[in-house]
Simulated assay, not measured.
Amino acid sequence: MRCTFRSGLVGSLMGLLVFSLSPAAFAAPPVAAATPSKAQAIVDAATHDAYKKAAFVKTGQRVAEVCASCHGLKGTSTTPDVPNMAAQNVNYVYEQLRKFSTGERSEGSHSKFMRGLTRAMSEDEKAAVADFYAQQSSIASRAPGAAAATGKAIYNTRCLKCHGDDGAGAESLPLIAGQQPGYLSMSLERYRKQTGTRLFAAMTKVMHGMTDQDMVALVDYVSSMH
């Protein structure tokens, strides 16, 4: 089947950027749960030949244009509490989009908007934009600060095992190197306080006993990684 971006969807998504979401946007049936490898399977199928790949790449670019006002044209946010998407892992992005669409991820001031936006997207469109971001280059959000050396020691003790020495993560774990400092701080605080919908036992364990000063140092280091 040819991979195309449905003509009415871009207009629909752009409308969401300007107008408030209608109640109907939240009444759609839940999207079926995806396995961590589903996004890559969609990407592989859509890029099997040059013709399909060109259409798939174009789809990802057009969806990313809708997301650019918050996440930047190539996935580098200019807002401290909005995450960078550039170079992010395909399956991780796809899974987060799925969770927004089902309401499994609902914390934060942007969650209602993201839920309506992702409900308007097809599975192919979610995978296409995830693949688009994965192809972009990441950059450090800021230069290392005074606490970066301390933060590196904390990272090596608490974070390296899952996120790697370069902060790249894995198939279902996020790239965190160079991430926006405000977003990192907000996420770590949620895990430390065990609030919101993104509770994860491994992160709860990592955050146990971490002080405010530790968090500042860790964010200083991670946001400057590249």
Score class of each variant (00 low, 15 high):
131 D>I: 10
132 F>T: 10
132 F>I: 09
132 F>H: 13
135 Q>W: 04
136 Q>C: 15
136 Q>M: 15
136 Q>E: 15
137 S>A: 15
137 S>Q: 15
139 I>S: 14
139 I>G: 11
141 S>E: 05
141 S>T: 08
142 R>Q: 14
143 A>Q: 07
145 G>C: 03
145 G>E: 09
145 G>W: 03
146 A>E: 11
146 A>Q: 10
147 A>S: 14
148 A>S: 14
149 A>C: 03
150 T>A: 12
151 G>K: 09
151 G>W: 04
152 K>Q: 13
155 Y>H: 02
155 Y>L: 02
155 Y>N: 03
156 N>R: 08
157 T>Q: 09
158 R>Y: 00
159 C>H: 03
161 K>H: 01
162 C>P: 01
163 H>N: 07
164 G>N: 03
164 G>C: 04
165 D>Y: 00
166 D>V: 00
167 G>V: 04
167 G>F: 06
168 A>R: 11
168 A>P: 00
169 G>Y: 00
170 A>Y: 02
171 E>Y: 00
172 S>R: 01
172 S>K: 02
172 S>N: 02
174 P>D: 12
174 P>E: 11
175 L>D: 07
175 L>M: 11
176 I>L: 06
177 A>C: 05
178 G>D: 11
178 G>Y: 07
179 Q>G: 06
180 Q>D: 00
181 P>E: 01
182 G>F: 05
184 L>E: 04
186 M>C: 01
186 M>K: 14
186 M>F: 06
187 S>C: 00
187 S>A: 11
187 S>D: 01
189 E>N: 14
190 R>C: 05
191 Y>K: 09
193 K>L: 09
194 Q>Y: 05
194 Q>P: 03
197 T>A: 13
198 R>T: 13
198 R>K: 13
200 F>Q: 10
201 A>F: 09
202 A>W: 10
204 T>D: 11
205 K>E: 14
206 V>Y: 07
207 M>K: 10
208 H>S: 15
208 H>D: 15
209 G>I: 12
209 G>D: 08
210 M>R: 12
210 M>E: 14
210 M>H: 07
211 T>N: 10
214 D>Q: 13
216 V>S: 14
